[in-house]
Design a protein around this nucleic acid. Structure first.
Length: 102
DNA sequence: GTATTGACTTTCC
DNA sequence: AGGAAAGCCAATA
């Protein structure tokens, strides 16, 4: 197994992601701020892409600032509907209602 | 050492 | 509302 990112960074991010309550979603920037890397939202996305490879985490509850779901990931929409997350469109969630309290 | 890229964010149009 | 450009950090080449 090739370590793509530093273990510490992954641990910080995944620790926050697993704390996201059901029926809510968090933005990459929000998570980035919680781990102390507000400007590293892109790193969060990269780590999340490998999160399933490192362990089972609710990465489907993480979306972009605009509620945009992960590109090339059709399953995420279904997973969110299972969590009773309000969807605006096939590829967007209603952040006004389901945004994780920070 | 610099250049490129990425599940991003913000600002401007 | 949706698209483009700039900005940011970390990893890879």
């Amino acid at each position: 197994m090739k370590r793509i990112l530093d273990e510490a960074l992954i641990y910080e991010i995944l620790s926050v992601v697993e704390e996201i309550p059901e029926g809510k979603v968090a933005t990459y920037g929000q998570i980035a701020r919680l781990i102390g890397r507000e400007k590293n939202a892109r790193l969060v996305g990269k780590v999340l892409s490998m999160s399933e490879f490192y362990g089972s985490y609710p990465c489907h509850r993480v979306v972009s600032h605009n509620g945009r779901l992960a590109p090339g990931w059709a399953e995420q929409k279904y997973l969110l509907e299972e969590e009773e997350v309000p969807m605006k469109d096939d590829a967007h969630v209603d952040l006004a209602l389901c945004r994780w309290d920070c």
